[in-house]
Structures are given as C-alpha cells and as structure tokens.
Design a binder for these strands. Structure first.
Length: 474
DNA sequence: CGTCTTTGACCAGCGC
DNA sequence: GCGCTGGTCAAAGACG
C-alpha cells in the first residue's frame, strides 16, 4: 500500500536515534493495523453489495416467472438485450418515448417504430421454415427453440468466436448493405440444426451482427456454453418476459406498442415487436414469423442506427470502440479456438445474469486484475457504477460516527476519485495496479475480498473463464 | 487426402 | 407472370 511506502524511512538509519527508529516502527505497525481495518471494512462493503446483487437477481427471476407467457403473442416478439445502449434511438423516422414503470430497478420503455424491413428480422425465410418442417422434429420445437438470437458486437474479425464450430455454406450480398452476409451452420455434431448469419452493420462497419437460430442437439464445448446459454436464456426470457399483447395486425401497423425494458445489474432487457426495425439491415420482404432476440454489445455513438429508445438507466456497458479490448475473444470463427481463448467476460456476465449461477471459480488474481482494468478503462459508466456503489456504502458507513469509518470514507472517496478520473485515459496499468493493490492487501489479511465471492458476476466469471482457459491450454 | 471456403446456380417467396 | 431478393446447394479450388 502506498501508505506504507510513504512511511518508509528515507534518511540514513545510522544517524537516526534508536528511539526514532522504534517510533517509526510503531507508526508503521499502526498504519498496517489501520490498513487491515480498512480492508475488513471494504470486505463488508463488498459483501453487502453482493447481497444486494443477489437480491436483485432473485427479484428479476421472480418477475420473469410471474410474467404469464402468452406463447401465441410472444412468438411475434423480438427481445433485445442491450448492454449499455442508452443513446437516442431511431425507429425509422420516429423517435421513442419512455415510460418507467416497473419497480425493483426494472424499467420499461415504450417505443414507436415504422414498419421495418430488416433482413435480420426475417431470417430464416419461409423456405427454411418449410425445410425445417420437413425435417420431422424440427417443427416440433417450441418457440424458444426456434427463437433467433441476434448479437451485435464490435469486432474487427470476420466473425465472432463463440466457441462453437461453424462451417460456412454460403454468402450473399444483400440489398442495401455493401457487406456480404455469410451463412454458417454448426458442425460440432452432424445434423445440428443451428445456423447463424454474420454480417457487418452497413452504418458502422465495426459492428458485427451475428444471428443464431436453432438449438444445438449436442454437448457444447465449455467455451461455447456462454453464448449458447445466453441465447437459450434470452429465448426463455422472450417467452416469459412479455406481458404486452400484440397481434399480427400490430405487426403490420406503422406503430408498435410498448414493451418493457428491464434493467438488472445495468443490463437492459428490452422487448421489441418483431416489426420494430431494431437495426437497420434494410430490405426484407417476408413477415416476421420467429421471435428474435437481439443482444446489443455496442454503445458507440456511431451506432446511431440502433433502435433503442433513449431512457435514463444505469447501464453497465462492456463494449468498447476499441475491439482490442477483447483481444482473445473475437476473431477466427472456425474450429475450436474457444478452447484456447477466453470466454468474453461480458458474455459470461449475461449468462450469469440469466442463470443466476454465481460461479465460484478458482482464484486468479491476475485475471481478475486484468478484467477489472479492462472493465474500468473500457467504459466510463462502469466506473461510475462502481464509484456510486462505493460512495453509497462508504457514506452509509460513515454515518455511524465511528472514527474508523471516517477513514474508510476517505479511502472510498479516494477510490472513487481514482476510478472516475480514468475517463479518457489509457489507464489499464493504473487500474491493474490499483486492484492488484487491493487484492494483495486483501491476501495479507487472509480474506477473500476480490475473490470468487465478488459481488459482480463479471468478476466471478473472469475467474472462471481464466480457469477454463488454463484448463484448455493444459 | 480430408476439410473448409468460395462462388455461381438454383429455388421459393413476395411484390408489382 | 415476371423480376427481385434471400437462402441454400454443390462443385471447384485452397489449405494444412
């Protein structure tokens, strides 16, 4: 800790009287004791944050379960999982309005849209539907299994690495988008019905839009479970999360009704009617027949084509305009690179948000540090959320009047200041060292402040993914 | 040699 | 009926 470093004697010890040495030693010991107390206090704070997180998570799933799914209507819906997209949304020529309504941190929003012609919304086409119907049990799949999951992410590589094995079977240049659309099918197991489309956003070439359809009929590699679980869970939410009723008429109308956006842990889960042009991808002709789940991992100002209403929300956005933030995640959509690559921590975040499974991975301080550094440096809102949480905890603690709490308050303020001040800076090294310091000081006290019990699942999964990564490499 | 990608052809749905 | 469009097929070539 810097406190200790500052207290290190700088002058020649030979000229310092023995009494002064002892005084400094005692002073250093006292400082160490205070630091330990601070660590204990921080641990309590984090425990409380964890409790709050779990409580919110439980509330979220309760709401999901309580929402009586109307499968006849939900099959006509799109679900959009937005991570941090808070900018104003365009729906054709209209803009959206906001209607907060749900409690427990769950917001809802309304939106208007013009009838969209999104190729994303219409895949698979009727031909495929007929084809799958001829395949026997394919048509027996429930809407969840038939749901499509569209993932938007910033990625320089041709495809996202989702851990699965894909084989490209076609490529087309769709009208209105100079970027060709690639068609892949899962080759992990023969006969796997899962297919995906990959296309770059015409308005922002850095955004890669991947649309998945179908469920895997085989075990998935560990590195692929994050995305698969995400899509599956999102599809489940698609059915359970809609309380709004729609009709085919509504789908054909020029304006759509309001569907809720739920915010949990900073993640926005919004439901869109299928006619909503969530993302540009113009030119589609067929009517929407499958529910579509859109997972927006972008929040760049340039992604003005995203059609999410602007609404005030506390959002954790783990995307970054710099794709290198996830160097080991994207790219090379072939084979099983996922076994050697880390599962994107934000994907795991999503997965855990749905599954409620707080992974208790092994300790990996370095991975945690890097993850924290990336999370903090990649998004200001993340820093703000952390700072706000710490501020809240510290302030409530300081009200107790305990002098040590005042020190904790000061420490928290410094931490907040340090976090917030990272805006606009390349502070990976700083964040890394900062949390290294936290973690190392924690280990001194024998606690597990930042270890698997960390309240943010992103951190837990960072452990997990790192562990998986090491396992696969071994 | 096996696997994968490329790419033109083909098919079906939709709008005019 | 025709043209447009999206999606799939399959032969040929590339690659390790």
């Amino acid at each position: 800790m810097e406190v200790l470093l500052m207290k290190m004697p700088s002058s020649d010890p030979d000229v310092i009287p023995q009494a002064n040495k002892e005084d400094e030693l005692e002073s250093a010991k006292a400082e160490m004791g205070e630091v330990k107390e601070e660590n204990q206090r921080l641990k309590k704070m984090l425990d409380k944050i964890q409790e709050n997180y779990k409580s919110l998570q439980l509330s979220f799933f309760k709401i999901l379960q309580q929402g009586a799914p109307n499968k006849s209507t939900t099959s006509l819906l799109n679900v959009s999982l937005s991570l941090g997209t808070t900018e104003p949304i365009k729906h054709g020529k209209t803009t959206s309005s906001i209607k907060p309504s749900l409690s427990l941190g769950l917001d809802s929003k309304s939106q208007l849209s013009t009838p969209a012609n999104s190729s994303e919304e219409t895949w698979p086409p009727s031909k495929i539907q007929n084809t799958t119907s001829r395949n026997g049990d394919e048509d027996q799949q429930n809407p969840v299994k038939r749901a499509r999951v569209c993932v938007r992410a910033r990625c320089d590589a041709p495809t996202m690495n989702d851990g699965c094995q894909w084989r490209k079977y076609g490529q087309k240049v769709s009208k209105g988008n100079p970027c060709p659309r690639a068609y892949y099918r899962c080759t992990v197991a023969p006969g796997c019905p899962v297919r995906k489309q990959v296309q770059r956003c015409a308005e922002d070439m850095s955004i890669l839009i991947t649309t998945y359809e179908g469920n895997h009929n085989h075990p998935l590699p560990v590195s692929a479970t994050a995305m698969a679980s995400t899509t599956s869970a999102a599809a489940s939410m698609l059915l359970s999360g809609s309380s709004s009723s729609t009709s085919q008429q509504g789908l054909n109308s020029t304006a759509t009704t309001t569907l809720p956006t739920q915010v949990l842990n900073g993640f926005n889960f919004s439901l869109h009617e299928n006619s909503t042009k969530q993302f540009y991808l113009p030119n589609s002709t067929s009517s929407p027949l499958f529910p579509t789940i859109t997972l927006d991992l972008t929040s760049s100002p340039s992604s003005s084509s995203t059609n999410f209403p602007s609404f005030p929300t506390t959002s954790l956005n783990f995307s970054s305009s710099e794709s290198r933030v996830f160097p080991a995640v994207w790219g090379n959509g072939n084979g099983y690179p996922g076994y050697g690559a880390k599962v994107p921590y934000y994907q795991n975040q999503i997965y855990e948000s749905f599954s409620g499974d707080n992974l208790q991975g092994q300790t990996c301080q370095q991975s945690l540090t890097e993850t924290l550094a990336k999370a903090i440096t990649s998004d200001p809102s993340f820093r703000s959320v952390i700072a706000a949480a710490i501020s809240s905890m510290v302030c409530s603690s300081a009200k107790s009047g305990d002098p040590t709490d005042q020190k904790a308050e000061k420490f928290g303020q410094n931490l907040m200041q340090a976090i917030i001040s990272q805006d606009g800076k390349d502070e990976s090294s700083f964040s890394s060292s900062y949390f290294n310091g936290l973690a190392s000081s924690t280990s001194q006290t024998g606690s597990s402040l930042l270890q698997p019990s960390f309240p943010f699942p992103i951190f837990n999964t960072a452990f997990q993914s790192a562990s998986d990564d090491k396992e696969h490499k071994n």
